[in-house]
């Protein structure tokens, strides 16, 4: 890990500015899984360790250079298989002295993953591989996923003031399918409502996984949220019911009156009533 006083500072600063201007630099070309399988997996990588700019090595090859806290890289299409990931200080020259890992990530074909470098509940850097749910979501709804990857005790998540998720602990996730819209979210210690993060507006789009990471450290007062979205799980309404009276039906009775309904329409009864009344009046004449 470099410090502001290390010899590499100027070079690192330049490199990171360049990386920032073009997005996170990811070099995944030519990496083959240790055990090959058919089909691709998608992998995103989130960096949730405060104060530590890192390099990410996959199968001993530098893949993400100068990866900064709070940054998200990917998604990358990778052939299914097992990948060995090591995270080093950004001035490392190879993967031999990882700060985190090495860990083996087993990626299955057709699946969508996010690998997260983060602090454990004990504040030690670690890594967790989350599987992103890409199953279809009911029309009109979105999937809200909250992942606790912060050095903090278990939390509750309040959505619009009500507890939506309770007792979520590092490194677990909780998943809610809710009507699409924007919610005001607060993260609080379990059993309390005082925000340790938020309130923050979170837009949960229809047919999309909105994945919220609570990261950082409670003790160091740098808790933060990062949001990742995975889209394309939308589905369709099951129909368009657009009529209720049969007024333009092609099978309406030949002598139909405008408000014929179910054979005993109100106006029909009124009409019959008036006819009878008129008939009676005529009969009396």
């Amino acid at each position: 890990m470099h410090t502001p006083h290390s010899p590499g500072f100027t070079a690192s600063l330049t490199a990171s500015l360049t990386a920032a201007s073009i997005g996170v630099l990811v070099i995944f070309g030519g990496i083959a899984p240790a055990s090959a399988a058919t089909g691709d997996a998608q992998l995103s990588v989130f960096h949730g360790v405060p104060g530590l700019t890192v390099d990410v090595y996959v199968n001993n090859k530098l893949t993400i250079d100068n990866f900064k806290p709070g940054d998200m890289a990917g998604p990358l299409d990778l052939p299914a298989g097992t990948y060995t990931v090591a995270i080093t200080a950004s001035d490392a020259t190879d993967a031999s002295k990882p700060a985190i890992g090495p860990v083996d990530l087993k990626l299955e074909a057709g699946m969508n993953y996010t690998a997260v470098a983060h602090l454990g509940a004990d504040a030690k850097p670690t890594a967790t591989l989350f599987t992103n749910d890409t199953s279809t979501i009911a029309a009109g709804s979105g999937r809200l996923v909250v992942r606790h990857v912060a050095a903090a005790p278990a939390v509750d998540v309040l959505a619009n003031g009500a507890v939506a998720i309770s007792n979520l602990s590092n490194p677990k996730e909780s998943v809610l399918v809710i009507p699409a819209g924007t919610i005001s979210a607060v993260v609080a210690a379990t059993g309390t409502t005082a925000p340790v993060i938020g309130p923050a507006d979170v837009k949960v789009a229809e047919g999309v996984d909105t994945i919220v990471y609570a990261w950082g450290s409670l003790a160091d007062k740098n808790l933060a949220v990062a949001v990742q979205t995975v889209s394309g799980m939308n589905s369709d309404p099951n129909g368009i019911p657009a009529g209720e009276a049969g007024l333009v039906a092609t099978n309406r009775p030949a002598d139909q009156t405008p408000l014929w309904v179910g054979g005993i329409g109100v106006l029909v009864l009124l009409g019959l009533g008036s006819a009878t009344f008129l008939g009676l009046r005529r009969a009396r004449r």
Partner: peptide, 12 residues
Amino acid sequence: CGGEFDYTARRY
């Protein structure tokens, strides 16, 4: 909506 109407279910 259009076409025939189901007078029992009240739907086209």
